[in-house]
Design a protein around this nucleic acid. Structure first.
Lengths: 219, 219
DNA sequence: ATTAATTTTTAGGTTTGTCTAAATTTTATT
DNA sequence: AATAAAATTTAGACAAACCTAAAAATTAAT
């Protein structure tokens, strides 16, 4: 099945909101897509007619199996392009989202297969988010939140959950990105802040920042 | 200035038709873009209002300076993506046009600057067509038609002017693409066909094929 | 120089995706 | 349970880009 750019944006939006909240409602999706509730209702009818989601008037809606498959294909395209933009074109990881947003709608299975092969079929994008494989299967990347990790272990940053410009600016300042090796030296119970080692340098991060950083052991 | 996908397709279409014919008329553009004359008229009004072309009702039209600059930027994007698809993703050179047609509309100057740098700012795309530089300047690639070349010189194929699938299939069959080294062994006056050497193999090409192949001396 | 043929434009309509404003349904509050 | 608030949907419009069919202008042919 082939979708318009708008349809793809709605499908992807529903997918992401579902991740956080299970089911999605009209207003939330309108907010997420920067459009109006009425427009969402219109599109829901269309996607429902195409049998991509489970929709009952005034109740919420969720992607069905077909819808989820479509969403994962779009997410795959988006994340592969993000990886390309950072690893091959040298973009900063916090600048690639909008461009990938456009590139992801370029269709053609062969393009994405070849792009994946060219990039070495990476498992995660530059933000640490998992990239679905050709069959829409998400790799399971074992990861733990920074706040629950014992001291003095060598860790690798595997994801940053808040991807707002403000957060990404902070990460850049600390020199932390996906793949960066860090070690926790000390917890401060008072405010949840902690001292960590990054690139042999000591620094303090707030509890709020720590909550958004995910890591795994070893390389 | 920022253009819609449709506007860009019209601008590019006019540019290409101008190359062959000097000025462009409504029907020719409609044919080229696979649309109807009435649609062309509509869009011409829009592009004219945006001061991209010189247009007088019932007379033809041509891109003005602004329009040409816009066209060259689009052509640059298209040809850089084609180069990427062939050189990096390993597509056959006769399969990349449609995909590049989509990719060329992804905006963002920085993307194209970085893509150009990543590719080594090539001068020609996989079909041998020149790639405009950042300022819209077209590199001059000295080249001669195969039919006017003396015998027994080492030549390099620099362009193929007919890019129909039929022609490209033929080129693939002969093992000829941009950069292929060839030598002319014999002209046959009767039908303009000629015997050439490609990859140490002798073969015969028709006069019609020869007319569409361009070469330069040396590497 | 008329008439015929071709080309181009206008007029009016369709589709996709959006919007505002009003109506409806659901949820929350008293 | 009745009413207020919030969420959702419907109704009706609009812009972009396309279409068909008819009218107008240009070019070609007799």
């Amino acid at each position: 099945m082939n979708f318009s750019v708008s349809e793809e944006n709605y499908i992807k939006g529903i997918y992401h909101l579902q991740q956080d909240a299970g089911s999605v409602n009209t207003n939330a999706l309108a907010g997420h897509l920067q459009t109006r509730a009425a427009s969402v209702t219109d599109m829901l009818k269309k996607l429902s007619a195409k049998k991509l989601l489970h929709y009952r008037r005034y109740k919420g809606f969720t992607l069905n199996e077909r819808g989820t498959r479509a969403a994962l294909a779009i997410v795959r395209r988006h994340r592969l392009w993000e990886y390309f933009l950072v690893e091959k074109l040298g973009f900063d990881w916090d600048k690639v989202h909008d461009i990938a947003e456009e590139l992801e709608h370029v269709s053609g299975d062969e393009l994405i297969t070849r792009l994946g092969d060219f990039l070495g079929n990476p498992q995660t994008d530059p933000h640490g988010d998992p990239i679905p494989d050709r069959d829409g299967k998400l790799p399971v990347i074992p990861q733990m939140n920074l706040v629950m990790i014992p001291l003095n272990k060598q860790l690798t940053v595997s994801a940053v959950s808040d991807q707002s410009p403000a957060m990404l600016e902070l990460m850049n300042h600390y020199g932390i990105s996906i793949g960066t090796r860090i070690k926790i030296n000390k917890h401060f119970a008072f405010d949840g802040s902690m001292e960590i080692t990054v690139n042999r340098q000591h620094c303090i991060i707030s509890g709020q920042v720590a909550k958004n950083i995910f890591v795994h052991y070893g390389k």
